[in-house]
Design a protein around this nucleic acid. Sequence first.
DNA 1: ACATTAAGTGATT
DNA 2: AATCACTTAATGT
Length: 210
Amino acid sequence: MNTALTNNFGYLFEEALLAEIETLGVAKEFKANTTIIEFGDFIKSMPLLLSGAIKILREDDKGDELVLYYLEKGDTCAMTLSCCMGQTKSKIRAVAETDVSLILLPKEKMTLWLSKYKTWQSFILESYHNRVEELLEAVDTIAFLNMENRLFKYLKDKAMVIHNDELITTHKQISEDLHTSRVVISRLLKKLENEGKIKLFRSSIKILTL
DNA sequence: ACATTAAGTGATT
DNA sequence: AATCACTTAATGT
């Protein structure tokens, strides 16, 4: 039996369902910073996250992007769910934030399992619920927080999902995630450093107050 | 040594 | 908060 699977989902799913996942699922690995789902991709299978973190981004027609939320171990991609139901293309981009291992489930089984396994049904519903919550949080952040707070929240979120207060990233990358300019990020980061909240290095940032 | 990339800064809108 | 123009510093070849 796949130990990574039972570790993350064993307490959630019944034996029969775990066995089905085991036989039908395909294990996959992604290195940090590789794209898992590209904007416009057709989704043919649904991922269960075993380890690592995935960054979910929205992208406009100009290629400008914006971070929506992060997925962590034990999560699934809600976007995939809605894509599986309809026959639509992905409206988001998924990038591995850290090294990621996941299990791909054939989408055909998704609806069948909903009626067959009660644990699956609650998992999907709860997952949807969590994603909606996170989406609302993202909207609030964008609408009501100024850039400085938004940036600091972004840094804390990022440190959270990778379980590390040393962020290996550049001002440019952050500005793209937050959909602003690099200069603005540099200035705000400097300000946060002066406030003693972070420490800046070349190509990395250390969070001091978590 | 030279080119490239990351980051810092003043001025302007 | 965004953009421009320019500088400085670190890194790669």
